[in-house]
Design a protein around this nucleic acid. Structure first.
Lengths: 221, 221
DNA sequence: ACCTGAACACCGTTCAAGT
DNA sequence: ACCTGAACACCGTTCAAGT
């Protein structure tokens, strides 16, 4: 709110608003108001709103450094890259939402992570095209995981969130059991989805197990 | 444009606009104009725009029927469910975008597919929570696959799309090779991502292989 | 270089009123 | 039941002008 109106200050304020009230609250006009400035002032620093979102996405991954250890197996390193990315994205509740809204190719720091993933995937022994897809799936999976529980309505005061979950579970439970038998039965675990640790590890486990198993099949014929 | 202004007519017109010009072109006012009616007329048929999007999502999956064959193995059936869903979503270029914008739990036909997936996942032998996550990952994966190549700017006339891809590839190739070595090297396959068949099958293969391998480990210890 | 004022062309939505 | 007119409170963006 004080200090110079720099690109970084704008981006950080945007991430703050997005994390506190949801990404839809991040508007040029609202942002300007929060920064004590005219909406048009932002257009000197960003060509348009898309560039602002790209700046937000880039800022999110800025602090994510990947230790390239050429000695350790690629499986281990790939798994660490994915879980590390998820952990970094969890710093801002709106992080996943931001990354879902921008073209990843336009975000320099995302390209940096992607490049590392691509280099590791190459060691698995798949074709070029398959390596590209594997790296895409893993990064996409990381974003999906980071978007997982909560992070949707970040404003809610944990009492509100609990209330929201209760309403959702009740909605599922009151569905006609003859057409949605399993959904009604599993309404509980479907909504709060088990512990956060299970949620964060299980998805990566499935993906990495699939990749490793298929890589092993390549070698054995 | 002619005929009665029914819920279905509105939804179909919305999907048509979204598929021809992108989902961001689907606006209450634009929709009303295309239907030869006042914007407020739509508010008699839909409470708000969110309900319209839910209606669009529901309509997309309407024609997707899953043959429940209790004799065949669950792996086979789950894979068929995912590929079938992808195929149905491909009917409208904006389908994946619609599903990414709505809460899946509010879409009856999506719940129907989810229920089937949940029932099949239960046969794998995982815990309740893990079954829920598996079904989520598979459906989420199907949507991601359907959003894959093209479907982003559906208006582009295949010449424009080719031009757009060429620009993107050139962008990647002209990146500094010392910081993005693998990206620059793989710019080609990264952009056009191999054949469509590879794109559609490889993702499901990884997920299903991961699930099957982990399920097998449960049984063997 | 950095910011403001005024204006344009859009949004979704409400509410009273028409038939 | 089904639709319209007028209005409200928003958007992103441009363009000339200020300092």
């Amino acid at each position: 709110m004080m200090g110079k109106l720099t690109r970084e200050a704008v981006v950080e304020q945007a991430l703050e608003i997005g994390s506190a009230e949801g990404l839809q609250a991040v508007t040029i006009r609202r942002l300007a108001q929060e920064l004590g400035v005219t909406p048009m002032a932002l257009y000197w620093h960003f060509k348009n709103k898309e560039q602002l979102l790209i700046g937000m996405a880039d800022h999110l991954i800025e602090g994510f450094v990947i230790a390239e250890d050429h000695a350790r197996p690629w499986q281990e390193q790939l798994r660490e890259l994915v879980t590390g990315l998820v952990r970094v994205l969890r710093h801002y509740p709106c992080a996943a939402a931001v990354l879902e809204e921008v073209d990843h190719m336009t975000v320099p720091n995302f390209l940096r992570v992607w490049d590392t993933a691509l280099g590791l995937a190459k060691q698995a022994g798949f074709s070029y095209e398959e390596n590209c897809l594997i790296s895409k799936y893993l990064l996409q999976g990381a974003i999906a995981l980071a978007a997982g529980p909560m992070s949707r309505r970040p404003s809610a005061s944990s009492e509100e969130r609990a209330e929201c979950l209760r309403v959702k579970r009740a909605t599922l439970q009151s569905l006609p059991p003859d057409v949605y038998p399993h959904i009604v039965e599993m309404a509980g675990p479907l909504i709060d989805g088990g512990t956060t640790e299970l949620y964060d590890t299980f998805g990566v486990d499935i993906l990495m197990t699939g990749i490793e198993t298929m890589a092993a099949r390549l070698r054995t014929g």
